[in-house]
Nucleic acid binder design. Structure first.
Lengths: 343, 343
DNA sequence: TTGAAAGCGCTACCAT
DNA sequence: ATGGTAGCGCTTTCAA
């Protein structure tokens, strides 16, 4: 039925009085307790619908210690990958009566810690974090608390908790291998200064080079450390630097799509062609990849699956606390577009 | 100071016992009440810092009736305009100790109503809504409730409540005028099936045509009604239809940037050039406009200002309830890029 | 099957 | 300046 927006806040007490019952009985009906007379249940439910009863979550939360809210801490909501994930996460938990409290930290470790504290003070039932911390130290204390912690996309090898994300080594390998297959012999990698995923992708990148008997050249690994920059600006600056090398790369794997956009702009500004002079691969397969100046080849990270799996994991844990931490790696696949297609 | 993540939940009661004080005194110190002895205050604050005290928001909320949470209901978090706004909104209220509860409704009126109810049941202190309702009827009941309602971006002429957004007629006028100045004589408008802003922009569009002695041609006003489509798909489909007209337009004003992206793709797929054959203007000035196949001219909607003004308005109202509804119109400005620059 | 009592952690009100 | 009491709306025993 269509929620009728417009009536004043109704309490269980009101319904109880109306029906000559006790609040406890009403509460039990509401929560589907089964030791309630059929007739009573009917009357209560009917009256609730009539008055459009909505529980006061603050009261419920205080009494139960649960909030029916999940916290999602993301580095940057404007980054399409995270906004997509947030959306799918929210959709998935809403189906189960949960809400999502979202924080965007601007990739700042300090803000992230503050937001986490805020969320804990709101007693979120689970915390899903795509962390911007440089290391696990600030997060390790969370394990002592009673709230389930799910790391998303970015993980820390020395933090034993749940994780949902991509297989970074595989992603790095796949992207680099693709560039090599397209004929690139001097493949560069532009990482992100923050992301802990950068390491795994770098590993995959090096593996692919090694497997193809190509040398690893440190000067081909770039990453701006200016944290004033948005990702696209980071990509632009890093690419500029790569172009200034004596022997610039002929292929670039970028840590994410915004970085790739910036990098592509730098390449075009420099008067070079994509993919003829330099082929580009991004990661994230952002919704608008197809509309870019040069449609961007990108590793799809399955934000839908990511959101859904994270939500499911969180809900599972709430139902039946896990004693072992679980790791869910999602399949990634390469979506080839013009930016790397050389034939 | 750096929040120390890792200790168990501390209550006011604990601090009171530690210090031989009453809970009330502790509470007063925490809230900055001034009739408290200097020495006592110091001791309490010190102990709080020591134990990393965080108030239980559920309890506070139950006692005060306030939640220190604002609700933001957006049509689609993946739409960059809304994710930007959400981010800025969150940033702005965080500074004042508030959190943002975000819902993304997928442009579905029913989901939106449900989310609003959820938020009310969480007793959000203010509700900021970029509505997907076809009309004001479902929302009008909200005015009876005690929660301040702020409409954002999309408004309803028959709903007397606060509004923060752009001046749609001006936006439509500005964009259309620009196309005409660039030499377009057959300007089309692709609206959105949902947005209540579409009407205002249409008015501006017609005004601009009239002011330039150009005829208004109904067949030049397009808008897909398929709500399965993302905005970019809507733009693609609508543009396709415009291209099939006997005399297709030579300029298009699109209701938002994703629509414009879709429209541009349709134009290019059709073998036409932008802006030589058809000039395109979008709205929203999304972060990546500059990286598109053809950099997109767009009306900047100032998502930063929008978020900040909405936050400020909400905070103001909470401090001092408004008896008159306030309307804040933000300045929009045209950012001209290649998609419409004809000389 | 139903309900009375107690309590979740905090704040408002009114004494002292 | 400090604190006792009551209560926010709900859930959780446990008794009837």
């Amino acid at each position: 039925m269509i929620p009728k927006v417009g009536t004043a806040p109704v309490r269980m007490k009101d319904i109880a009085q109306d029906l000559g019952l006790s609040v406890v009985t009403v509460s039990k009906v509401f929560r589907g307790h089964r030791d309630i007379g059929e007739e009573t249940r009917r009357r209560v439910l009917h009256r609730m619908a009539e008055l459009n009863y909505r529980p006061n979550m603050a009261a419920r939360s205080l009494a139960t210690g649960r909030s029916f809210t999940m916290g999602f801490v993301a580095p940057d909501l404007v980054h399409p990958f995270f906004s997509e994930t947030a959306k799918h996460l929210a959709d998935a938990v809403r189906d189960k009566g949960y809400h999502l409290l979202i924080a965007s930290t601007g990739e700042e470790a300090r803000v992230e810690r503050e937001e986490i504290e805020h969320m804990l003070s709101r007693r979120v039932d689970a915390l899903i974090i795509a962390s911007s911390q440089p290391d696990a130290s600030s997060l390790s204390g969370l394990l002592q608390r009673d709230v389930p912690l799910i790391l998303m996309d970015r993980r820390f090898s020395d933090l034993d908790t749940h994780f949902v994300g991509g297989d970074d080594a595989r992603i790095g390998h796949m992207a680099t291998m693709h560039l090599i297959e397209q004929g690139c012999r001097q493949v560069a990698y532009i990482g992100s200064p923050y992301a802990s995923t950068a390491h795994g992708r770098l590993v995959g990148y090096r593996e692919a080079l090694a497997a193809s008997q190509l040398p690893f050249r440190p000067e081909y690994v770039a990453s701006s450390s200016h944290n004033d920059f948005a990702a696209d600006a980071t990509g632009y600056v890093s690419m500029k630097r790569l172009l200034e090398l004596e022997s610039p790369p002929d292929g670039v794997f970028c840590h994410n799509d915004p970085i790739a956009m910036g990098a592509m702009k730098a390449i075009l500004d420099h008067g070079l062609r994509i993919p003829e002079d330099i082929a580009v691969v991004g990661c994230g397969n952002v919704r608008y990849s197809d509309f870019l100046r040069v449609p961007l080849t990108s590793v799809d990270q399955d934000s839908l699956g990511l959101g859904q799996r994270a939500a499911r994991l969180a809900l599972d844990i709430l139902k039946k606390p896990a004693h072992r931490s679980r790791t869910i790696l999602l399949e990634s696949r390469l979506v080839v577009r013009a930016s790397s297609r050389r034939r």
